[in-house]
Simulated scan of single mutants.
Amino acid sequence: MAERIHSGIAAARERAEPFCAYVHDTAAIADHARRLRAALPDACTLLYAVKANSRPEVLSALAPVVDGFEISSGGELRKARAADGDARVVFNGPGKSWAAVEEGLRAGVDLFNVESLTDLARLDAVAGRTGTRARVLLRVNTRRPLVTGTHQMVGEATQFGIDEDQLPQVAAAALAAPHIDVEGLHLHSVSNNPDAASHLAFVDRCLALAAELRARHGLPTRVLDIGGGFGVDYSGDGRHFDWDAFARGLHDRSAALTGIELVIEPGRSLVAEHGFYCAEVLDVKHNHGRAFAVLRGGIHQFRLPKVLGADHPFTVVGVDSWPWPVDRTELRDTPVALCGELGTPADVLTRATRVGRLRTGDIVVFPMAGAYGWEISHRDFLSHPHPDFLTT
């Protein structure tokens, strides 16, 4: 990666611009996904959640390895189809528009999740108009949480899914709809859960709920989509999700999975570790007794630290060349706040981490930036240039 960074620095210097880039190791992404897929039992389908990172180079690396893609918009559908025109696609999320539903049906989306009666009626109407059928999963917002993580989707009042108390009405409507085929349930519940044991317990609760709803409402449960939510460790404390233990647990549940396709939709856990956000130091200064380094970039390009509410780890790549006709400033052995170029004090990526040496012109590299970095950032605030995108 260091070679790719230095070649990127050289290209930026030719443009007389500071260096700022995302670097993705696409070979490592593919290898990681291949290993995770191989560990799963045959009853499982592994889909990549495009929302985590929708870069074309990332999708192209994953397309031959995963079983398909999970998408939440027409734009993501087009990106998935560009990576693999025949890939299996599941269309999830609330607020699907008429146009997006029609685009999905015409593009051969395999499964749609249903979030409400309105969502169901829209799918049925568009399927009837286009002469197709919509295969659907009913997304249930259970009365109690099924698993916990940094973001809770169900088990509380959110915009996601069908309230469990309203499920009889929606299930009856879905089973009676003339252009709908009900295939099962969608139960994605949480984001960024680091604990494999609790995720296996979540699978058990999903299987029990599926059996209950099948018996009570006659719902088919050929497909059970448990979503993603597999956590990664941003702190460096070694709390990585134990995928091998999770996969072994699924193998142990092979009898319970008989006749069920278990759809799993990781995003973050497939790509986070193999992406890096890199930003050149533009200024080093002191204010009110504290040291600050101002970077080309910031939360408008890499908003993840602000979302997580934590200091993001980083390393410093020293750059010895200094072609500019001004003195070069530096810090030595001192805590520093790494800040971006925006006109807001909220633009902080890490607040007081000690550095051995940091100079204007050096490059700060933030690891674990392969998921929910660029995708969730307000990238055009102040209209700064976008970063480069490099692959190794």
Rank of each mutant, 00 (worst) to 15 (best):
G218V: 11
G218N: 11
G218T: 12
G218L: 11
L219E: 03
L219W: 07
P220S: 12
P220A: 13
P220W: 10
T221K: 01
T221D: 08
R222W: 05
R222K: 13
R222S: 14
V223T: 14
V223S: 01
V223R: 05
V223L: 07
L224Y: 02
L224H: 02
D225Y: 04
D225I: 06
I226D: 00
I226E: 01
I226S: 03
I226Y: 01
G227T: 05
G227D: 04
G227E: 02
G227M: 05
G227Q: 05
G227H: 05
G227I: 06
G228I: 04
G228S: 09
G229W: 00
G229V: 01
G229Q: 00
G229T: 00
F230H: 09
F230L: 13
F230P: 00
F230Y: 15
F230K: 02
V232I: 14
V232N: 01
V232T: 14
V232A: 11
V232Y: 00
D233L: 09
Y234Q: 08
Y234E: 11
S235F: 13
S235T: 15
S235Q: 14
S235M: 09
G236H: 11
G236A: 13
D237L: 13
D237C: 09
D237E: 14
D237V: 07
D237R: 15
D237A: 14
G238D: 10
G238K: 08
G238M: 11
G238I: 08
R239Q: 14
R239E: 12
R239L: 12
R239G: 05
R239A: 15
H240N: 13
H240I: 00
H240E: 15
H240L: 09
H240G: 09
F241R: 01
F241E: 00
F241D: 01
F241K: 00
F241Y: 06
W243N: 05
W243P: 03
W243F: 15
D244Q: 13
A245L: 13
A245F: 02
A245V: 11
F246I: 06
A247P: 03
A247Y: 06
R248E: 13
R248M: 10
R248A: 14
R248Y: 04
G249P: 07
G249R: 06
G249L: 10
G249Q: 08
L250Q: 05
L250E: 03
L250G: 05
L250H: 03
H251E: 09
D252G: 13
D252M: 09
D252S: 14
R253Q: 10
R253M: 09
A255N: 09
A255H: 12
A255L: 12
A255T: 14
A255Q: 13
A255W: 02
A256M: 10
A256F: 04
L257D: 05
T258C: 10
T258W: 00
T258Y: 00
T258G: 12
T258S: 15
G259D: 09
G259L: 12
G259P: 07
G259N: 10
G259I: 12
I260C: 06
I260L: 09
I260Q: 03
E261N: 11
E261S: 13
L262F: 07
L262P: 02
L262H: 04
V263F: 03
V263W: 01
V263S: 04
V263C: 04
V263D: 02
I264V: 15
E265D: 15
E265W: 00
P266I: 06
P266Y: 07
G267K: 05
G267V: 03
G267Y: 04
G267C: 07
R268Q: 07
R268F: 01
R268H: 05
R268K: 11
S269C: 11
S269H: 14
L270N: 06
L270T: 04
